[in-house]
Amino acid sequence: MKQILDYLAALEQNNDREWFHAHKEEYRAAARQFEELVGVLLLRLRELDGSIPPAKPGELCFKLMRDTRFSHDKSPYNPAFRAHIGPKGKLPIPVGYFLFLRPGDRSFLGGGLFADCFKDATDMVRQRISAQGGEWQRLLSDPAFASRFTPQGSRLKRVPQGYESDHPQAEYLKYKSWYLEVPVTDRQLLGEGFLDEAIETFAAMRPFNGFLNEALTGFVMPQRPGK
């Protein structure tokens, strides 16, 4: 794990194509170590969540290259290793388990719906929270869940049209995405117990993911133009 953190720290300090290409071997070594970690997590997650299919670890990992076309930040690389282990691999829907590694105590374990750009997905989750508000509240109030997690997400200022402003779950109906993040320090990453801690955390997220995926049944990922 130290190899991963050291490489990413160096990339953050030298975020340009010339440095990246001059240090391709260091990148390959760090990427291999990350894929090995994802592979182990995948095997263990499949033991506790039957919705996770077999996959090649590399297929679950995101590239370091950034799309800078519409960004003020023109740094070509995202100095973080990221992977999503879900029912459809690294596709954000159905939701799954997200691993984000970045040095400086900026790593985290995540779950839920991070993307708020899919309007149909947002509508589907809102409808289920509206119709199954009691189930949603029981999930969030469960001591095993509440002691670990606080749902996050981008949100509107007001309850959207079509929903009751005095609904018991009105605050969550404002959300456009619903996700969980558990911070991970560099010291935790380097410790011997990190894998067990990660699996324990992901296991505790499973009911949250399950609720969202029930809501998202039948969702179709939009096709890119020209596809």
Rank of each mutant, 00 (worst) to 15 (best):
1 M>D: 02
1 M>N: 06
4 I>D: 00
4 I>R: 02
5 L>W: 03
7 Y>W: 11
7 Y>P: 02
9 A>N: 06
10 A>P: 00
11 L>I: 01
11 L>C: 04
11 L>R: 01
12 E>Y: 00
13 Q>P: 00
16 D>L: 01
17 R>T: 08
22 A>E: 13
24 K>T: 06
27 Y>Q: 06
28 R>L: 12
30 A>V: 03
30 A>G: 05
32 R>P: 02
33 Q>C: 06
33 Q>Y: 05
34 F>S: 05
37 L>D: 00
39 G>L: 13
40 V>S: 15
41 L>E: 04
41 L>Q: 06
41 L>F: 14
41 L>D: 05
42 L>M: 14
43 L>C: 12
45 L>F: 10
47 E>Q: 15
48 L>Q: 15
48 L>M: 15
49 D>C: 05
50 G>E: 15
56 K>L: 13
57 P>C: 15
58 G>S: 15
59 E>Q: 14
59 E>K: 15
60 L>C: 07
61 C>K: 07
63 K>T: 11
64 L>E: 03
70 F>L: 09
78 N>S: 12
79 P>D: 12
80 A>R: 10
80 A>W: 03
82 R>I: 09
83 A>N: 05
84 H>K: 09
87 P>Y: 12
90 K>S: 09
91 L>E: 15
92 P>C: 01
93 I>M: 03
94 P>D: 04
95 V>E: 02
97 Y>G: 01
102 R>A: 14
102 R>T: 06
103 P>D: 01
103 P>N: 05
104 G>R: 07
106 R>V: 02
107 S>T: 03
109 L>N: 00
110 G>V: 01
111 G>K: 05
113 L>D: 00
116 D>H: 14
120 D>N: 14
123 D>Y: 01
123 D>N: 12
131 A>K: 15
131 A>E: 15
131 A>G: 14
138 R>A: 13
138 R>V: 08
140 L>F: 08
141 S>C: 07
142 D>V: 02
142 D>E: 12
142 D>L: 04
142 D>R: 08
145 F>T: 07
146 A>C: 06
147 S>Y: 02
150 T>R: 14
153 G>S: 11
156 L>K: 12
156 L>Q: 13
158 R>P: 03
159 V>M: 12
161 Q>P: 02
162 G>L: 15
163 Y>N: 09
167 H>F: 10
168 P>H: 15
172 Y>S: 04
181 E>G: 02
182 V>L: 04
183 P>E: 04
183 P>N: 08
184 V>S: 00
184 V>D: 01
187 R>V: 10
188 Q>S: 12
191 G>N: 09
194 F>D: 02
195 L>C: 10
195 L>V: 12
196 D>T: 12
198 A>W: 03
198 A>C: 05
198 A>Y: 00
199 I>E: 01
201 T>I: 03
202 F>C: 00
203 A>V: 05
203 A>L: 09
205 M>R: 00
206 R>E: 10
209 N>A: 09
210 G>D: 13
213 N>G: 09
214 E>L: 14
214 E>Y: 08
216 L>R: 06
216 L>K: 07
220 V>Y: 05
222 P>T: 07
226 G>T: 10
226 G>E: 11
